[in-house]
Amino acid sequence: MNIYVGNLDFKVNEDELKEIFEEYGTVNSSKVVTDNFSGRSKGFGFIIMDDQTEANKAVNELNGATLENRKMVVNEAKPRKQY
């Protein structure tokens, strides 16, 4: 499952994000989206977990959880719109 994680503090990096989700199961990859020019975090990222049960548990328990004084928005990622 591809999981969207929003409202991240700009200091959160991919390793920290992965570590949080590993408490719920195996994480295949973590990505914090950054600005191409400044390299600064855009405040959101993605986690990929293969096990659907583990992924659902992570989404349910982490949505609204506080990380670095910000409440995360965690849900299943939706496919990008094709224009």
Rank of each mutant, 00 (worst) to 15 (best):
E16L: 05
L17H: 05
L17S: 10
K18A: 08
E19H: 13
E19M: 13
E19Q: 15
I20Q: 06
I20H: 04
F21L: 09
E22K: 11
E22C: 04
E22D: 03
E23H: 11
E23K: 14
E23R: 12
G25S: 04
T26Y: 02
T26N: 04
V27M: 13
V27I: 14
N28A: 09
N28M: 12
N28I: 09
S29Y: 12
S30K: 08
S30F: 08
S30D: 11
S30C: 13
V32A: 06
V32Y: 01
V33R: 12
V33S: 07
T34M: 09
D35L: 02
N36K: 11
F37I: 08
F37E: 11
F37D: 11
S38I: 08
S38P: 08
G39V: 06
G39M: 08
G39Q: 06
G39S: 05
R40P: 00
R40T: 00
R40K: 06
K42M: 07
K42W: 01
G43M: 01
F44P: 13
F44R: 15
G45Y: 02
G45N: 04
F46S: 09
F46N: 07
F46R: 10
I47P: 01
I48F: 12
I48P: 00
I48D: 14
I48M: 13
I48R: 13
M49L: 12
M49H: 06
D50L: 06
D50S: 12
D50K: 07
D51R: 08
Q52Y: 10
Q52L: 14
Q52H: 12
Q52D: 14
T53A: 15
T53R: 11
T53M: 14
T53H: 11
T53K: 14
E54V: 14
E54A: 15
E54H: 15
